[in-house]
């Protein structure tokens, strides 16, 4: 069993008058890909935003590498080595592709070997390097968002529905990119509705419903158990492929 890099214990989050997370408990092992699944409105995005400090949890603990980060401000959390790719991708459309990447680097700017690594992973980024990011397609923006997350060495990637709204061909490219990250033992917490992707990438899985974790286990076990899939997610993985 790998060491636990991120642990959520009894996390409650309110957004205004609404109580969204009701005691979320799960952990992300170091060097593995953890899938966070669940129906729309289950609280997956809120969980990720609570981890990043974009919404402050009202109760519970979020520990990252042994440190409680639940009350920390977002920039401090990011500086611990957590990269976040939101559902909206968070691309700065008025900036160039290069500037989007540069923002995520340290004070010294691009490290040549990291830049080469990222461009090898997503070659299309090199072709558009000096173009305004607003002109990229949805798939290219998503690749840029992920490239930005890995342009520096990070301890954890927190990624929210990267395949949402993308064409099947682009999704295949993204899966290939994630598989290379996984092969490099990058720790990833991934919210995803595409079950093919979840099955291809996930080492472990947590399933949410109504702001709670209702299942935790190995991704392979869930992928193999059609009845469990139907019980937890409403549809089997096979039905969605």
């Amino acid at each position: 069993m790998a060491d636990l890099l991120l642990t959520l214990s009894g996390v409650h989050t309110h957004i205004g008058p609404y109580h969204i997370l009701h005691g979320v408990d799960f952990a992300v092992p170091d060097g593995e890909v953890t899938m966070l699944l669940g129906r729309n409105g289950a609280g997956k995005t809120t969980t990720l935003r609570s981890i990043m400090g974009l919404w402050t949890p009202t109760a519970g603990q979020i520990r990252f590498a042994g440190q409680d980060i639940a009350a920390m401000a977002t920039p401090e959390i990011a500086r611990l080595g957590i990269a976040y790719v939101p559902e909206t991708m968070g691309i700065f459309t008025q900036l160039t592709v290069r500037e989007n990447l540069l923002l995520a680097t340290g004070p010294a700017g691009f490290k040549p070997h990291k830049l080469a690594e990222v461009l090898a992973l997503f070659p299309v980024i090199e072709l558009k390097f000096n173009q305004q990011a607003g002109g990229l397609s949805g798939g290219q923006k998503q690749m840029l968002a992920i490239a930005r997350a890995i342009i520096e060495d990070r301890r954890l990637l927190v990624i929210d529905e990267p395949t949402k709204g993308l064409a099947p061909g682009v999704i295949v490219q993204l899966i290939e990119g994630f598989q290379r990250l996984k092969a490099a033992r990058t720790t990833i917490l991934l919210v995803e509705q595409n079950f093919e992707m979840a099955r291809a990438l996930g080492d472990s899985v947590a399933v949410m419903e109504d702001g709670c974790i209702v299942h935790r286990g190995a991704m392979a076990d869930l992928a193999a158990d059609t009845a469990l899939q139907e019980h937890l997610l409403g549809l089997s993985l096979g039905a969605l492929q």
């Binding site: 990043m52 974009l54 401000a73 977002t74 920039p75 990011a78 500086r79 976040y84 939101p86 968070g90 700065f92 459309t93 008025q94 900036l95 500037e99 540069l102 923002l103 995520a104 004070p107 930005r148």
Partner: peptide, 24 residues
Amino acid sequence: TRIGLVVRAGVENREMVEALGYRI
């Protein structure tokens, strides 16, 4: 400059700038 880059990014999406580690 880097400060200018962060300002331009912050004008567009403050939250994402913070998520990249900048104290906006």
